[in-house]
Structures are given as structure tokens and as C-alpha cells.
Write a protein that binds this DNA or RNA. Structure first.
Length: 420
DNA sequence: TCTGGGGTCCTAGGACCC
DNA sequence: TCTGGGGTCCTAGGACCC
């Protein structure tokens, strides 16, 4: 038996925790650079604001309905997420954090009134973090996801739904839209629509050979999971990332080599911090950039260049220097770059890695020591405390006009309470 | 004016091996 | 004229997730 705990409208809910006067009112959170709507309160959804709608297109709706608008504040969301996870860990020995706002709980072997348990987990998350959470419990992860979605649809479930008996599951699947099933994306939905498959139940009625042929292994797993046969593994071990990417859209188009390399150096430095945090080395790095594809009248370019570190690298000096060098080769004058990034694609464990006989071990040791010092300073004083000169101001040049304070992670932003 | 960011897994096909 | 059989590894691209 698995539980899925899913935070409702998570980013919008985080903002409301510290702005309770916004409860019951429409709230949206924008993507980085204030580009699109990426979270919406129920009231905002009811106004017809869709996931991914460009901000400038929905501005009339926002102004007419007095929608509260926030730039994304990931320091806040990450911290609130950790609080919810802590509450969840109190209910199950093993928890798989699936995303910033969702976690699976392994309830295998547990004997409990699962319907009551689901409601209790939801209530405790709300009580201890002020975040509304929908908890679905069922024999497979895919069904647990569906159960949690039912909570959002039916308030009378009080945030918890246990779905177990075959006749109950069938009843739900018969009306559950197939495109809302976990693992069925836009492409598959199109194919299914052409075949007349509308509900999750219709999907279950397809022949095994048809499913395997048209939707391959992932679609086949979903098919079995819907029928109550678990085949998506529970993964509570945190594995090191196989790729690490830092990329951003810019507030304005970047046209100078100076600003371009400064931004790339900043991406590279942040990516290196992530690489080091999981104790891994990068053997390949890509630097990529593109112009604004929506401005068709302007000259367009898009592409990237690779750098190889044969022995693997994880020190700031090597990586930032290489990134800048690569950025200089990539940059073409006359173009306005709108987005760029740095990606490590081939990551290996630092443990047991050995340098080639040609390596300059003295320099490597010095670079590694310097990197350790940087890590320590960043940990105590924040990411921007000490920068490479090549990073310029060390900031991402994004638009963030509506960002809320870092209520829970910065001393100066902690809410003050005045008692009269 | 203004359109996000960061991941994983699977598959087919090419390159290569003996 | 006729040109094997069996395997692995790697990569790009597709599809999906939040």
C-alpha cells in the first residue's frame, strides 16, 4: 500500500501562509523572469488562468479581478517543502520525495484504518505547516495519485482518500479522464483520443499487445498499475543526479560578450556547487545559449558547445575558467541572447576517481582546497558572498518584480509580530 | 514590452566487436 | 552471382514528470 501526499497549489499556498488575508482570493505565482503562471490558487484557476499562460497575456484578467501576483521565491518553497516532508516522515518509515510538492509513503506491512490515516496525515500537515495537502492511499503509486486528485475534487473527503476495493476503483476509473493519469502525456493522449479512449477505464480495456506496441514499456507499466499491479518501484534512496543544469532566461536581451560571459560564469559556479554537494565529478560540460524565439523579426541563433574533462572535474576554478572559454567561442556579436545555461551531462562519483598520469596533481590539490574554502564561505554567508571576478555582480539577470520576502530563510526577512 | 527551469527513462539505430 | 550471426555500447531524440 502506498500513500501519495500532494500539496495543493503548492507555491500559491506557500505565499498564503504568510499573507493569510489572501485566503479565498485568487493568487498566482510566476515562473522565473516573471514569464508564465506556474501556480494558481483555486480561485485563480476558476478565472480561467491556465498553467503556463504568459503573464502579459493574462494581465487583463489579473487587473480586472485583483489577482495577487508573486514572482517565484524558491528559497521559501524549498524550506516549506522540507517542513511538510518532516511531518510526513512521522507517518511512515520510508518516504520518497518525488518533487518539491509531492511525496510517496511506503505503507507496506502496516495495519491501519487507511481512510482515517489519509485524513490524519492531511490534517497534521495543515496543522504543523499551514499547507493544505491531499493524501491518496491505494495499492499502486498510479492509483494513489488518482486517489489524491479525488481529494482536491471533493472537499468532503477532508484531504484524505483510501481507494482499495476493485468495485470502488472501477467506479473511479470509469469517469477519470485518461489524460489526467500519471504517465499519460500529451502525445499519448492524442493517440488515445483518436482510438476513442477517454477514461482510465477505457485504457485498462485495451489489449496488452496494443498497449505495449503503441505506448511501450512506460505505458504498459501504467496500464498494469491502473489494474492494481504495482510495477513502479518505490525509491527512497536519494541517488546522485546524472545531469545538472543551471539555466535562465534574461530580463533583457544580452548583446555584449562581457555580460554574456559573466552570466555563464555565474551559471557554472552555481552548477559546480550542486555537483560538489553530491560528491561527484563532471566529465562533460555543455554551455548553451539562444536568442528570443518569439521575436521572429530578429536574427535567431541557438546552440551549444561541449567541453570534456577526461579525469572528471569538480573544482570551481577549472570549471568556471572552461565555461568562460567556451562562452567566448559560442558568443556571436549581433545577436540578442535571451536564455543561456550550463549543463553537466556525464557525472561520475568522486569516490574512487583517479587522475591520469599526466595530471598536474599539485595544481589539482590547490584548486580543490580553494573550492573547499568557497563551499564553506557559501554555506555560512550565502551563495553570493564570494564571487569570481569574471562573474560580474554574480546575480541572475532576471525580472522579479513581485517576489515575496525570504520569510523563513533570511534573518532580515523573518516576519515581525507586534504585541500591542 | 512581456512566453520557466530541471530532471528521468526508453528506444531505435549506428558503430563496433569477434 | 554469391556477402553470417550474434552481441555490446553509445547516442540522439522522444516522451514523460513536476
Amino acid at each position: 500500500m502506498y500513500a501519495l501526499a500532494d500539496c495543493n497549489n503548492f507555491f500559491a499556498s506557500c505565499e498564503r501562509v504568510f499573507r493569510p488575508e489572501l485566503n479565498g482570493k485568487p493568487v498566482i505565482v510566476l515562473s522565473n523572469n516573471d514569464g508564465c503562471a506556474i501556480a494558481r490558487s483555486n480561485e485563480a484557476k476558476a478565472l480561467g488562468i491556465k498553467m503556463g499562460d504568459p503573464y502579459f497575456k493574462i494581465k487583463p484578467i489579473i487587473e480586472r479581478n485583483n489577482v495577487a501576483v508573486f514572482s517565484s521565491n524558491f528559497a521559501l518553497y524549498g524550506d516549506m517543502s522540507a517542513r511538510v516532508q518532516e511531518v510526513l516522515r512521522g507517518f511512515a518509515p520510508s518516504v520518497e520525495v518525488y518533487s518539491i510538492d509531492e511525496a510517496f509513503l511506503d505503507l507496506t506491512g502496516m495495519e491501519a484504518d487507511f481512510d482515517a490515516l489519509a485524513k490524519t496525515i492531511s490534517r497534521e500537515c495543515r496543522r504543523l505547516t499551514a499547507i493544505p495537502v491531499s493524501v491518496g492511499i491505494s495499492p499502486t503509486k498510479t492509483l494513489a495519485k488518482i486517489a489524491s486528485k479525488l481529494c482536491k475534487k471533493y472537499p468532503k473527503l477532508q484531504g484524505g482518500c483510501f481507494m482499495y476495493r476493485p468495485q470502488d476503483i472501477e467506479k473511479v476509473l470509469r469517469t477519470f479522464p485518461v489524460e489526467d493519469v500519471w504517465g499519460i502525456g500529451r502525445r499519448s493522449f492524442k493517440k488515445l483520443a483518436d482510438m476513442g479512449v477517454k477514461t482510465a477505464w477505457d485504457y485498462c480495456q485495451l489489449q496488452e499487445t496494443t498497449v505495449r506496441k503503441l505506448f511501450n514499456l512506460p505505458g504498459f507499466r501504467t496500464w498494469k498499475e491502473l489494474m492494481g499491479i504495482p510495477c513502479i518501484e518505490f525509491e527512497d534512496m536519494i541517488e546522485p543526479k546524472q545531469s545538472i543544469c543551471i539555466s535562465r532566461s534574461f530580463a533583457h536581451e544580452v548583446t555584449t560578450l562581457q555580460e554574456f560571459t559573466e552570466q555563464i560564469a555565474t551559471f557554472a559556479s552555481r552548477a559546480t556547487a550542486k555537483l560538489r554537494a553530491q560528491n561527484t565529478l563532471a566529465t562533460e560540460m555543455a554551455v548553451f545559449a539562444m536568442t528570443n524565439r518569439f521575436k521572429e523579426s530578429l536574427p535567431q541563433t541557438s546552440g551549444g558547445l561541449y567541453t570534456v574533462f577526461p579525469d572528471g572535474a569538480a573544482d570551481y576554478r577549472t570549471i568556471v575558467t572552461s565555461a568562460i572559454k567556451t562562452a567566448r567561442s559560442l558568443f556571436r556579436p549581433g545577436f540578442g541572447y535571451k536564455k543561456a545555461g550550463v549543463v553537466f551531462t556525464k557525472i561520475i562519483p568522486a569516490e574512487g576517481a583517479s587522475a591520469s598520469i599526466w595530471a598536474d596533481t599539485d595544481t589539482m590539490e590547490r584548486d580543490e582546497n580553494l573550492s573547499k574554502v568557497l563551499d564553506t564561505i557559501h554555506k555560512s554567508f550565502g551563495n553570493g558572498a564570494l564571487l569570481w571576478g569574471a562573474q560580474g555582480d554574480g546575480q541572475f539577470h532576471m525580472a522579479q518584480e513581485h517576489r515575496s520576502p525570504h520569510y523563513t530563510t533570511l534573518w532580515s526577512d523573518i516576519p515581525k509580530v507586534t504585541v500591542k
